[in-house]
Amino acid sequence: MNGLVEGRVVVVTGAGRGIGRAHALAFAAEGARVVVNDLGAALDGRGGEAGPAQQVVDEIRAAGGEAVANTDDVASWDGAASLVRAALDAFGGLDVLVNNAGFLRDRMLVNLAEDEWDAVVRVHLKGHFAPLRHAAEYWRGEAKAGRTRAARVVNTSSGAGLLGSVGQGNYSAAKAGILGLTTVAAAEFGRYGVTVNAIAPAARTRMTEKTFDMAAPDDGFDAMAPENVSPLVVWLGSEASSSVTGRVFEVDGGRVGLADGWRHGPQRDKGARWAPAELGPVVAELLAESVDPEPVYGA
């Protein structure tokens, strides 16, 4: 390791297991001081215990790194504020926020209950916004005081947010919302020295055990290992990434790619109001000139 983020203070949410744990360990290995946040909840978000976060902290400290555990609920306004304060109290500042926490309550839309919708949207979308909001308030204050930090935010979306996923309407909507939040935050926070990017990772975790083979290969490269995602996140959290903001990266195995968002496509302008009956041929022409959308996962 070459100390790419030496001395930087990093918060990783949902860092007790899976991809978040891999991020926390990777940042620490590159010299960062890490706040390991995890509520310790079950896969569906219920319950909670301090063990997972503390175990990751113990791993980091055993390897000679610096870390503290935090079990605040990042989708709670006060919990998110407390998380940011934890970084300031423990390490005197905050340079990087990696929003990663989340859980699943999968169900086909026709069977999806209100509480299943609310819980998933809350943890993913509000659980990104609330820490982002409190961190940005700190960074704005630092900039106004003449202490602009080279701050970084890395949000976590998903292929489900990019393309949709059958049986995951709540999750797909929340993850798509994170993409919109990312682009707006990048546009607004640049004046404070903050870049904001998102990743859409694929890896073997509790959340993907029904999608990917949970067994690692006996030998060779483990393309689904969570650790494959973290190098890009560490780089995005470094000062070297200052020119990159408002972008979405797909990352898994040894693959890193850029995801192109919604763009203006072909159009027709009559210069006056259309009559409904005129629009059938117009829409047919537009569709003929456009690229077909990527298929929804599971369709």
Rank of each mutant, 00 (worst) to 15 (best):
Asn2Phe: 08
Gly3Val: 14
Gly7Lys: 13
Val9Gly: 10
Thr13Gln: 07
Gly18Val: 06
Ala22Glu: 02
Ala24Lys: 11
Leu25Glu: 11
Ala26Met: 10
Ala32Lys: 08
Arg33Tyr: 09
Val35Ile: 14
Leu39His: 04
Arg46Cys: 07
Glu49Arg: 14
Ala53Ile: 06
Gln54Gly: 01
Glu59Pro: 01
Glu59Cys: 07
Ile60Met: 11
Ala63Gly: 14
Glu66His: 09
Ala67Pro: 00
Ala69His: 04
Asp73Leu: 07
Trp77His: 02
Val84Asp: 02
Ala86Gly: 00
Ala87Asn: 02
Ala87Ile: 06
Leu88Thr: 06
Val96Thr: 06
Leu97Thr: 01
Asn100Gly: 06
Phe103Ala: 10
Arg107Tyr: 04
Leu112Phe: 03
Glu116Asp: 15
Val121Asn: 02
Arg122Pro: 03
His128Asp: 11
Phe129Arg: 07
Trp139Arg: 11
Arg152Asn: 13
Asn155Met: 06
Asn155Pro: 02
Gly159Ser: 09
Leu162Cys: 10
Leu163Val: 11
Gly164Phe: 15
Asn170Tyr: 04
Gly177Val: 04
Leu181Thr: 07
Leu181Pro: 00
Gly190Tyr: 00
Arg191Asn: 08
Thr195Leu: 00
Thr195Ser: 00
Thr208Ser: 14
Lys210His: 15
Phe212Cys: 15
Ala215Cys: 01
Met224Pro: 00
Pro231Ser: 14
Leu232Met: 10
Val234Asp: 01
Trp235Gln: 01
Trp235Pro: 02
Glu239Met: 04
Glu239Trp: 04
Ala240Val: 01
Ser241Met: 06
Arg247Trp: 04
Val248Ile: 14
Glu250His: 11
Arg255Trp: 11
Ala259Val: 12
Asp260Leu: 13
His264Thr: 07
Lys270Met: 13
Gly271Leu: 10
Ala272Val: 09
Pro276Asp: 11
Ala277Thr: 09
Gly280Phe: 13
Ala284Phe: 05
Leu286Ile: 15
Ala288Phe: 11
Val291Glu: 11
Val291His: 13
Pro293His: 09
